[in-house]
Design a protein around this nucleic acid. Structure first.
Length: 211
DNA sequence: CGAATGATCGGCT
DNA sequence: GCCGATCATTCGA
């Protein structure tokens, strides 16, 4: 059993999360390591695909028009908390809330390249061997990492947090970042054309909707 | 209180 | 490539 090297790498800071440039932050997240320590199981993966959502003008955002509900409330908090919601009754979708308090915006993590805790991910996904279906897509990624709506609002920078993001010092080159329209938001009018989806070009773990 | 909706996935063809 | 599951959330009556 290998030692769990928790805290070996620096976590993204509060100042990063509270920054107010969500497209820049979305690009920055590519290559960062999303980690969870849930039910005694450590799992991690490198972020390879992300999408930005920003109220009040973004029709695809749950907080469009600054709609404040019990579910969207966490998006209005200061950056650095998790926004996790249930989609189609089964998928727990993980987002990173960014920006100052009062401004609802979040980045959906759509795919990760699995790194640590592969056995736990396989078990949670009921799979026998690793392939791109393990973590390529927001729903399956959430399942593999043990995400659950009960953790919505979790503070990513808290000392004992179950969910956090590490900078392991391998930034993705600007030239390898591609962008395009977001997935599944065709009904969002002109917002559907915004290139607010970012991914690492030629990375096999990017979700199947790759452009 | 009832009904529509959805930032998706896996199985089947 | 297509199709249906599945349920919390939201909104309107």
């Amino acid at each position: 059993m290998a030692l769990r090297l928790k805290q070996t790498y620096p976590r993204l800071s509060q100042s990063f999360y509270s920054g107010d440039d969500i497209l820049f932050q979305s690009r920055c997240l590519l290559g960062m390591h999303l980690c969870t320590f849930i039910a005694g199981r450590f799992t991690s993966g490198a972020i390879v695909e992300a999408e930005a959502y920003q109220a009040p003008d973004d029709k695809a955002c749950h907080a469009y028009g600054n709609r404040l509900t019990k579910r969207t409330e966490v998006m209005f908090r200061a950056g650095g908390v998790a926004y996790i919601y249930l989609c189609y009754g089964v998928h727990h979708m993980f987002n990173v809330v960014t920006g100052p308090a009062g401004k609802a915006q979040a980045i959906l993590i759509r795919a990760v390249q699995p790194e640590e805790g592969l056995n736990h991910m396989l078990q949670r996904r009921k799979m026998s061997k690793v392939n791109s279906r393990l973590t390529s897509g927001p729903g399956v990624l959430g399942q593999a990492l043990g995400m659950h709506t009960q953790y919505s609002g979790a503070e990513l920078t808290a000392p004992q947090t179950k969910i956090w993001i590490e900078d392991r010092g391998f930034p993705v080159e600007e030239s390898k970042i591609q962008s395009g329209p977001r997935v599944g938001v065709a009904s969002a009018g002109h917002c559907a054309t915004w290139n607010w989806r970012f991914w690492i070009s030629d990375n096999p773990w990017v979700s199947r909707w790759r452009a």
